[in-house]
Simulated scan of single mutants.
Amino acid sequence: MLNRRHTLLGLGAVAALAATPVVATEGRLNVVATTGMIADAARQIGGADVEVTALMGAGVDPHAYRQTRSDIAAMTRADLVLWHGLYLEAQMEDFFRGLARKREVVAVAEAMPKDLLRGHDDYADKFDPHVWMSPDLWAHVVQEVARALTAARPALADRFAANLERHLGELDRLSDYGRRVVSGVPQENRVLVTAHDAFGYFGRDYGFEVMGLQGISTQSEAGLNRIGALVDTLVERQIKAVFVETSVADRSMRALIEGAAAKGHAVAIGGELFSDAMGADGTYEATYVGMLDHNFTTIAGALGAEVPGAGMDGKLGAGH
C-alpha cells in the first residue's frame, strides 16, 4: 500500500484534527467540479469554507458529457474549477483549455505520477482515467484538490490541511476494508465482468481479473464479436455473475446473459456497481467512501465472500 501519511501541503503536523471538516469563516470559496467524486473531495477538504457544485450527478457518464449553458454560467462565476483530466471528460477538454485563460482551472488527476497509471490498448497514447477505483490512488487526487483549494485561499491552509489528514485516514480505512472483504472471494471466482473497463485499478489492487464489455471509454462500441467472445469466456470458465453499472445502459450485459443461457450456462447479475458516477444526492453512496464501500461489498458478496450486509460502517442502503 502507498504511504499517504504526508501531505503535499507540508502541514501534516497539525495536532488537533476535527472529527468533521472544521467550521467556516466568512467568504466561502465557490468551487465547481465536474464529477461527483471530485466534488466530494472538495467538500471533504474544504468543509464549510467552500461551496461546491458538481456538474455531473448520479448516473451521468463523464465520457460522453458535454457542458450545458447553465454549466458554462456556473464555471465562469466560480473561484475555482476542478476537472479530472486523463481524457475522462473527453468532450469538454477544448472548453477547459479556453476557460483556463480566464479562470483558475485545475485537472486534478493530471498531477498523478504517471508510473502509477495504467495504459490501455484502446488508447495507446493515453492512460486509464478511472483512478478513483483505488483508494490508494485517489489519495493523490485528494491531495491535489487540497493544493488547489489552498492556492485559491492561502489563509485557510491550516484548516484544509487538518481536513486533508482526516480524510486520508478515511481512505486508509476504506482501502483496508476493501482488502479484508474481498479476501474471502475464492481464487477461482476472482473474475469481474462489467459493462466497460472501469475497474482495472480495482483489479490491480485487489487481485481480480477484470473484463469490460466496452473499453475504458463508454464511447467505444461493444460489437457482436466482443459479445460473442465474452459469452464463450463465461461458458468456458463457468463464470456465474456479471455486474451492471449505474452510468451505463445494461442492454449489452443482458445480451451476455442471454447468450450464455443459449449455450446452457446460467449467469446472474451480481449487482449494480458505481463506475463513473456516485449514488443519489443525499445518500451515503453519494460520498466517495460510500461509493467504494458499496462496490467492495457488492462485488465480494456476489462472488462468494461473507460480507457485512450494510457495508463497512452499517450505512449502505440507509438513504439520507
Rank of each mutant, 00 (worst) to 15 (best):
L99G: 07
L99W: 07
A100G: 14
A100K: 13
R101K: 12
R101D: 12
R101G: 12
R101F: 08
K102N: 14
K102Q: 15
K102V: 13
R103Q: 13
R103F: 11
R103P: 10
E104I: 11
E104L: 13
E104W: 08
V105K: 01
V105L: 10
V106T: 05
V108H: 01
A109E: 00
A109W: 00
A109Y: 00
A109G: 08
E110V: 10
E110A: 14
E110F: 10
A111P: 01
A111W: 00
M112Q: 03
M112N: 04
M112C: 10
M112S: 04
P113M: 05
P113F: 06
P113C: 06
K114L: 11
K114T: 13
K114C: 09
D115L: 03
D115V: 10
D115K: 06
L116G: 09
L116V: 07
L117Q: 14
L117K: 12
G119E: 05
G119N: 04
G119R: 07
H120L: 11
H120Q: 11
H120P: 05
D121T: 12
D121H: 12
D121F: 13
D122L: 15
D122C: 14
D122H: 15
D122R: 14
Y123D: 04
A124I: 13
A124P: 15
A124V: 14
D125R: 04
D125P: 02
K126G: 13
K126C: 13
F127R: 06
F127K: 10
F127P: 01
F127N: 05
P129D: 03
P129T: 03
P129E: 02
P129K: 01
H130N: 05
V131K: 00
W132S: 10
W132D: 07
W132E: 10
M133I: 13
S134G: 15
P135D: 08
D136P: 07
D136Q: 12
L137V: 14
W138S: 05
W138D: 06
W138N: 03
A139D: 06
A139V: 04
H140N: 10
V141K: 00
V141L: 11
V141M: 07
V141A: 11
V141E: 07
V142Q: 02
V142E: 03
Q143H: 08
E144W: 01
E144A: 04
E144V: 02
E144N: 08
V145P: 04
V145W: 01
V145G: 11
A146H: 09
R147T: 08
R147D: 07
R147K: 11
R147G: 06
A148E: 02
A148K: 00
A148G: 11
A148W: 01
